[in-house]
Each structure stands twice: as C-alpha cells, then as structure tokens.
Design a binder for these strands. Sequence first.
DNA 1: ATAATAAAGTTGCAATTGCAACATTTTGAT
DNA 2: ATCAAAATGTTGCAATTGCAACTTTATTAT
Lengths: 204, 204
Amino acid sequence: MDLDLFLNFDESEKNALIKRLSAKKIKYKKEGIVATNINNIDTIGIILSGKINIIRYDYNGKKTIVSTLKQNDIFGKNFNKSNNNELYAIARDDSEILFIEYDKIISSKNPTLISNLVNILANKVVLLNERIELLTKKTIREKILDYFSYLQSIKISKTFTLDMTFTDLADYLSVDRTALMRELKNLSDYGLIKKSGKRITILY
Amino acid sequence: MDLDLFLNFDESEKNALIKRLSAKKIKYKKEGIVATNINNIDTIGIILSGKINIIRYDYNGKKTIVSTLKQNDIFGKNFNKSNNNELYAIARDDSEILFIEYDKIISSKNPTLISNLVNILANKVVLLNERIELLTKKTIREKILDYFSYLQSIKISKTFTLDMTFTDLADYLSVDRTALMRELKNLSDYGLIKKSGKRITILY
DNA sequence: ATAATAAAGTTGCAATTGCAACATTTTGAT
DNA sequence: ATCAAAATGTTGCAATTGCAACTTTATTAT
C-alpha cells in the first residue's frame, strides 16, 4: 500500500509537520491496549508499523474482531463508530502508532497533507465496500469463492497463499470457523479448489 | 446531514467553483440509469437531491442493492469497488447529481473544498462501519435488535417509524425478506418489540 | 375508480450454519 | 529441545435461514 499521510513530503518537512501538528508517536507491545472507547476520540491514529485489531465486546462478553488494521491504516475520530458496544484497539503485533488531532490536520490548510488524508480515506472506503460485498453474500460458499477470486485478481495467479489464518478469515467473513473449514472441504471434494494448508488453487 | 462539498462557500463562490471544476449537474427520472460500471470511473457523483441505488447483478442475474445513497452522499472513483460484478447506479426517485472529476478537486488546492471532501468521506467511513457492524452479527434477531437500537438512539425514542420498506431493510441487513418478517413476528411474540406496520416500539 | 404493481405477511420444508466437543498439527517462547 | 498455546481439522446435532409458493394489503398510474 503506497498510501501515506506524509506522501510527497521529504523527511525534514515531515518532521516539521509532525512537530507543528503536535503529533505523538507511541510504541505498543503485542496485546497492548492502544485505545479504549475509540468511537469517542477526536484523535486519529495512523499505524506506522505492526497490526492493530479493532475489537468489539458484546453485552454478553462475546469478542468480535471488527477489523484488522495495518500500516498506514487509520482509526479513531468516529471512523470505526459503533452504536452500543464500545470498541477497543489492541496491538496484534508490536506496533508504532502516530496520534494526530483530527482538527489540526484540517486547520493546517496544507493542501498536500489534506489530499493525502483524502486518499487514505477514499482507500478505506474502497476496502470497506469490498468487505460489505463479501458480507452481503448469502452462503459461506459464495463468500469463500468471492474472496478467493479477489485474491486471484490481486495475486494475478490461480494459486496463492492466504496471508491470514483461517481463524481470522472466518472473522473477516463473519462465519463460524468450523463451518468455514467444512465448506472449504466441500469445495475441495467438489473439485472447485485445491487446498493444501493455506495454499489454495482455484480449479475453475 | 449537514455534510456538503460546498459548505462554507457562499452562493457566488460555489458557482464559480463549479464552473472552474467543470462540474456537471444532471437530472434523472426515477429508475433512470445514472451510471454503469461505476467501479471504473474517475468522476465522483454527489447526490444533490433524490436517492440512488447502487446495484450489483450477479453472474446468475440476481440483483442486490449494495447500498442506497441520499443527499450529499458520493459514489464513483472506486468508492464502491467490486471484484467481479459490475455495479450500476440507478435513480430510486427523481434525482439530481453533480459530477466532478476527482482529480480536479484534489488539484484545486482549495483547502475548504478539500476539507469538505474529507468530512464527507469520513462520514461515509462511519456509515460503512455501521453497516459492517450489523452485517457481522450472526443472527437475524441480533441484526434487527441492533438496527432498532440504532434507530432508537437517533430518533431519541423507543417508538419510531422505519423510513424504508421491509424489503429494503432485508436488503440492507442482507437477509431473506420472509425470514426477516418471521423474526419480527417472533420478537413481537416474545414481547421484545411491538410492531404495527412500520411503526416499531422497543419494549425492553 | 380501478387496474396494475409493489410491499407485506404467512407457512412448510430443505439446506445451511453455528455450536459443542473433540483430536491433531503448527507455531512460538524459553 | 520441550512445553504451552494457537491454529487446524473433523463430526453430530439442533437452530437458523433461505426459498418456494402462496394470500392479503398498500401504493401508484392512468
């Protein structure tokens, strides 16, 4: 992903900008709590390195990974709004996060900086729409085939390796993990895919 | 919704800007085709009035309303990207749409204009996240209760009237319409809600 | 006013799915 | 190298859901 809030700034400009925006870079250890109640903060967090899980705890204590964010993704400032349940951001790996107050970016009146923010947001909208496309599919089979055909298109190959665990894939597609495994087996048995661990080949 | 690309411009500034951006305002009749193949256009459409359905046709001809857009919503420029299936935008009511080339907004270097675009996009991200929250719920019951509690929070009342048809609600929640009706009946029978047509009261 | 079209509502049934309860394999830390 | 934890994989079963096939009620157009 070549999206970056500081795209088209050189290193010294970037540092000056970070200083002027009072941006704060904070490091987190794996499993560290990055932010609580992120639906109500006026700060945006930009992931410089590592991975962050956005997590929702239901009223009955059930945990759902709402999304997983990686380098250059942003969270906060209502970008991950939830109605009832509070959302938490937890480091999935050792991570570095840059916190900037949203209003300071806007009031900076720096066209390049703001354009970069537009591109990041537009990209986020694309990713969210892609996920919605998958989530609106009615069967697990359709979700899998759709996601695999997406992977096929970005890896430009009918054979590819999943870059997440099946546990996380089940979360992403919002289906039961064991039901996902079962359906993957069905697809293999029907000869629609070949599966060897996380290595998948589309056979149609 | 007080989000508007031309927020903080007065009428004459706005008109000058529209001219400079070569923006085009086009009117559509209900059911009119606003745009085809909207995943591949470099233009953004801003809905000035009316409502637009973003529609996907599956390989097997099945129609799904991917989203419904209303005043000040935007589409195009990959904001509604789809992997395989082409997306169409169709006017749900008589509508007016302003088309602007995305690059012209960015290269305008107009901080107010771009800030407005940021706010529109940020708002869209929020709405998409809200929908994802609903779609990741495992049962129809959970989806309904979550959506109703969202309506309760914005209408600030335990009684409210749905502003879409149950057919569209089923699409939005991505569930079978008749299964939705059945579950609404179950919720009534269990005494969790009261339902009289589209008038809903939450009883807990 | 009435015909046509869309939406709402109901029900039976089969297919899909989630969940529980496991065994096995892989990964990661010390 | 070894132990613990996480991930993978399997299966039976019950619950949920989608689909088909309707009827009834609203809405819209002429």
